[in-house]
Write a protein that binds this DNA or RNA. Structure first.
Lengths: 248, 248
DNA sequence: CAGTGGTCTAGACCACATC
DNA sequence: ATGTGGTCTAGACCACTGG
């Protein structure tokens, strides 16, 4: 059986929360209740509720029952790193076009982000992303050389580079670091996104890496204002968010 | 002793990573090594490394040693919810001025975010934030009525509302949900931040709640482009980030 | 005060990586 | 084949919440 006990329990609790059976502000059963009901040890139950806490669905304090914080669904990691999967998960139609793919030496920033020796070759890609036919994002990505050939071979309207890499060589993104800021549209941005120069864009720069920590890509994605919102939830015990000044 | 075993181990490992003693891409000692070295059980060691994994510092795959992913420090939850603590942590001087504080009925959105009955009273605040004397952020916050009196009593240049609430009534933020997007500066934004109307701003809307899940405030913070960057790290096992279309 | 979550132990078996 | 992390058990004591 591929079944994992604590994920079963977590899924059942998640379902109860998302369906509204457990209202926001309501209390979860105690750990011992859950352990008895599922014939599992307390450790396993704690692993299940820790999963939900990491998703921001529930909170806890020593001595008091766990409480439901929200009942909205979250998106998976795959949806986060893949524009196509994200769009489809929301019922939108994702489009994509490679505008250029060229090999060139990495810039200093790209080399640093991809943990490459300065001047190593990367595959630089310019790509336009559409949502229901409308252009919403311009993507400028540098791929590490060990995936470059595979990316070059993809069709110009390839739905998802990350999906194709997974199906092809089995390369899967496992970690990501994302930098979010705002900037004014440059002339190329403006032309491709059909907005005026200087209009606000939301920029998401991110590096994706394999489970072993090997960087795959470093990307600069610029969204038309109003087209997307990023959402982050955190707590005093688990802090996935950071804020910085200036560039970087 | 107020010492917690797994936090001690986590702190030691974190120190080793941040100092560079364990290089990026390097492998951590095995769980049994660490357990022996610290005279702790394997469960305790796993709790320690789980802490670092949640901070995005290390990654793991079944069967292989854990690897170091990065060695940059993260900011605490407190720094995330508090402009003042964040600025001071970076060595900048944070300034602040209340421009207005008025009680009025909650808008539909505010009532929903703060889990209030429609039309309940809130304290609406307009506040300008400075970094080293320069205006960088405009904050429009709705405080729940049960903290309104306390916020009204604070001086106009109060450094940190959240710190003051903690010291005063012991109200501490424990959970947060943040929405990040870009938008064009309105006329009030432009005047206060000394930028042109229509220039790009990074908007962070967020709700803060107590450990019990009781909402404290709902805020719309707008940063001058280039003044701040938000950073998020995630992995296939822990996904704190979500992306959405349109408003909300 | 009883109940609850937070911490910790000392085992066990399995799936997967690495050599 | 050996080592490693992933999962699970069945206990234990403590700190804190709540009525």
């Amino acid at each position: 059986m591929g079944t994992v006990r604590y994920l079963e329990i977590a899924a059942a609790l998640r379902e109860a929360i998302l369906s509204g059976a457990l209202p926001v502000g309501g209390r979860l059963p105690s750990e011992s209740d859950l352990a008895a009901r599922w014939s599992a040890s307390r450790g396993t139950v704690r692993q299940a509720v820790a999963t939900l806490a990491a998703e921001g669905l529930i909170g806890s304090r020593q001595g008091a029952r766990r409480v439901v914080l929200r009942h909205e669904r979250r998106h998976s990691f795959a949806e986060l790193n893949s524009f196509a999967q994200w769009a489809e998960g929301l019922g939108h139609e994702a489009g994509s076009r490679f505008l250029s793919r060229t090999r060139r030496p990495a810039t200093a920033e790209e080399a640093a982000r991809l943990a490459l020796a300065p001047g190593s070759a990367v595959l630089a890609v310019l790509r336009l992303r559409l949502l229901d036919g409308e252009p919403v994002m311009v993507e400028r990505t540098a791929y590490a050389d060990w995936v470059a050939a595979e990316v070059e071979a993809m069709p110009v309207d390839c739905r998802s580079v990350m999906d194709s890499l997974a199906e092809g060589s089995g390369t899967v993104a496992h970690h990501g670091e994302h930098l979010l800021d705002a900037l004014a549209a440059g002339s190329e941005d403006a032309r491709l996104l059909r907005v005026r120069r200087g209009s606000p864009l939301l920029r998401q720069r991110h590096v994706s890496a394999t489970a072993a920590g090997r960087p795959i890509e470093w990307s600069d994605d610029r969204y038309r204002a109003g087209s997307v919102t990023f959402s982050v939830s955190n707590s005093a015990v688990a802090t996935p968010l950071e804020r910085r000044t200036g560039d970087r």
